[in-house]
């Protein structure tokens, strides 16, 4: 394989790797453990934590391997194209993922809840829940999870929106700096982006604690509680992943891995950060404001 990278017509065939199976086991433990933890099995916590450490181990190993191969010049134009195709499919799956959860929110909010409240021919209201007065947000006619309050948009959600938008501004400045070849500015504004990202996560954790302890808004608070925590929770996981990837990219910038013309790693992660930012904007608009 040593000579293959000089020939643009030959495809670089990677050696065998164990990282995909390590990643699969890690995700299985992380999510399976978390699901059991939420359902009251104490061992779930440990399985979930094991999954998290395995996942971080995989990121360290897999990222490192790809970076070393890239620096060694193994990747020709065909590999470059396949990286970009990989990014496209990854984003497609991400869009579908969030579309499903936003879809669930819209379906519940604009169709199911009004039906239960007597919209249409009123049959569902009369047969299933007579006297149910449909409002949004709601935990449904069964009052699942007990009375709750929503988190007011004017407080931490707005602050978090401003934090994420600021991080969008700083990463755009970093992006312009990279294109202009201004290394110092690139490193500074990329660092600020990471800092803003982790600050957002801190406030989000605080908001969750307030929701559970003061508003009685939990994952079990009917359809509003479950859609609220699924959407904001998965978004938070994406911010976490984005911040980790930005940190890796920061060290790569420090080591001078990117140039004005060759910086797909930077551009893909920067775009991902913008994507996560837009998802939040949608969340803020449709969950908190509109």
């Amino acid at each position: 394989m040593e000579h293959a990278h000089h020939d643009a017509s030959k495809y670089y065939v990677p050696h065998g790797t164990n990282w995909p199976i390590v990643g699969s086991v890690a995700l299985f433990c992380l999510v399976g453990g978390a699901a059991n933890w939420l359902n009251g099995h104490p061992w779930g916590k440990f399985v979930s934590l094991l999954g998290l450490f395995l996942l971080l181990f995989m990121m360290w190993g897999w990222f490192g391997q790809v970076i070393r191969e890239s620096i060694a010049g193994f990747y020709n134009r065909q590999v470059d194209t396949s990286f970009r195709m990989g990014m496209i499919w990854f984003i497609f799956s991400e869009v579908m993922f969030f579309a499903a959860f936003f879809g669930a929110l819209f379906y519940a909010r604009t169709l199911v809840v009004p039906w239960l409240g007597g919209a249409g021919d009123g049959a569902m209201n009369q047969v299933l829940w007579p006297g149910y007065d449909a409002t949004w947000p709601t935990n449904g006619p069964g009052n699942v999870g007990g009375a709750f309050e929503t988190v007011p948009a004017w407080g931490i959600p707005l602050l978090n929106t401003l934090l994420l938008l600021s991080s969008g501004v700083t990463i755009t400045i970093a992006h312009h700096a990279l294109r202009a070849g201004q290394r110092g500015r690139l490193l500074l504004f990329l660092f600020l982006t990471i800092l803003l990202g982790f600050t957002f996560l801190g406030f989000q954790a605080y908001e969750y604690m307030a929701a559970y302890n003061h508003h009685n808004l939990t994952l079990a608070s009917g359809v509003y509680g479950s859609t609220f925590f699924m959407l904001t929770g998965f978004h938070g996981m994406h911010v976490t992943l984005g911040a980790i990837m930005l940190s890796v990219i920061w060290f790569r910038c420090l080591k001078g891995h990117f140039s004005k013309e060759h910086h797909f790693g930077f551009e893909a992660v920067a775009w991902y950060w913008h994507f996560v930012d837009v998802v939040w904007l949608g969340l803020f608009l449709f969950v908190y404001v509109l």
Partner: peptide, 29 residues
């Protein structure tokens, strides 16, 4: 990002002026 920042500023202004009402504290019948 420019449009996003502009949008949030306009929304803040709208809430401030009472042109839109974010979800109040409600619920749990």
């Amino acid at each position: 990002i420019g449009l996003s920042v502009g949008l949030i500023l306009v929304i803040c202004l709208m809430i401030w002026l009472g042109l839109i009402n974010p979800h109040g504290i409600v619920v749990g019948h």
